[in-house]
Design a protein around this nucleic acid. Structure first.
Lengths: 217, 217
DNA sequence: TAGATTGTTAATCGATTAACAATC
DNA sequence: TAGATTGTTAATCGATTAACAATC
């Protein structure tokens, strides 16, 4: 049912939001929704929703709209949420611990299987069922376990080095919380950045004296 | 020197990255850079850089390029980094504490002046010079202090309610780390979302079986 | 000066929106 | 059936890239 050509990243970046909205609708007990109702709720056009979905298949029914549970499941499959991805986290400092304890990897289709840290004081501690190991053990761990994604929550200075270990270890993606711009060469590894700074500076622009004109998201 | 019309959000979202790159160049001792060299480093076209910058003024010199330190400062001003913004954080759980301790608000032009939490056990504790207060005191705090931005690092269930307190208290922006889609009505308050889930799901798509075609950022 | 590089205008490309026949 | 709503094609809009005169 899921066909894919080359889909633009603009479309891909909207998929998680569709998923999240459908999840909320489902939680509220909605059974069906039309593209126009969904568009109104999300603040985008019905046309865009239908156009986006048409990249992957036909999920609706004329005169009816979309079944909420079905469409949610379809999108979750498109996003690969059913593929039992595994992840390891590197850098069990404040942010790393916050992710281990509060972020639900499971709900997003990931199993967080291990965490690593360079600080001897952190090693051996366990958070939310995940034990912190010595970073020296990373290479060996990657050899003996299938790991799809490495999560980088460590100081910028160590980021590139650890990224290279992850790439050598065969990960397919890096979820990068450091401020570093990672160089993955021609490895084909996908880097998804979460740059807190960039985000706050964008906000800064819009609330600053000169940026007043443009409002909204 | 800084002129602004209505600048597209595509341009705005690139500004922090320009700033970050110029910051790195400056750290490495670079004095001047041309749009083509900067473009090569960032993986975008020289044309785009010149086009982007032209929204705000003329910062270069024919035959020379741009002075790194000057352009960095110009962009920091465009982003409002010199405007002494203040912020309060709501929700001093793991993520909130991680931000208080690790994220440099100061480097981004913000002073984090207070944190609030609903849990009595958290109240009174101090992290990185910021004391955690009872969330009941928020309204009064906002009345007696000028606060530009509220940072939401609390459970989704409480997010909308707290957003409304922030809006009533006169903030201009909300930095939202919760998974909730906030409704700010016609307040004009700008919401900048950091949706971890959306980010990880995007990564999930690109590393999943069907998403293989498209690589790179 | 000659070469390099800007800022800007024009051309291209891609993404969003509108329209509508198909059909549940 | 009649009304509603899809999937898709065409039209529009906006963003990116190319080209080039101006000039340091």
């Amino acid at each position: 049912m899921v066909k894919k050509g080359k889909v633009s990243s603009a479309v891909i970046r909207r998929l998680p939001r569709y998923y999240r909205t459908l999840e909320a609708l489902h939680r509220d007990g909605a059974v069906r929704i039309s593209s126009s109702a969904l568009g109104k709720r999300m603040g985008i056009t019905a046309s865009q929703i239908r156009q986006d979905l048409s990249c992957f298949g036909e999920f609706g029914q004329q005169g009816y709209g979309y079944n909420v549970a079905d469409l949610r499941r379809e999108i979750s499959e498109i996003l690969g949420m059913d593929q039992d991805h595994s992840a390891v986290l590197i850098g069990a400092g404040n942010l790393g611990k916050a992710l281990i304890r509060n972020f639900s990897f499971g709900k997003n289709g990931f199993a967080l299987s291990a965490a690593f840290d360079a600080d001897p004081a952190a090693i051996g501690r366990e958070f939310n069922g995940v034990t912190v190991r010595a970073v020296d053990e990373l290479d060996e761990y990657l050899r003996s376990h299938k790991v799809n994604v490495g999560v980088l929550t460590l100081p910028r200075s160590a980021a590139q080095d650890m990224a290279e270990h992850l790439i050598a270890g065969g990960v397919q993606g890096i979820w990068n919380f450091t401020n570093a711009e990672l160089d993955v060469g021609d490895s084909g590894v996908f880097v998804e950045n979460v740059h807190f700074s960039d985000s706050l500076l964008t906000l800064s622009y819009y609330i600053s004296d000169a940026g007043q004109k443009a409002e909204g998201e």
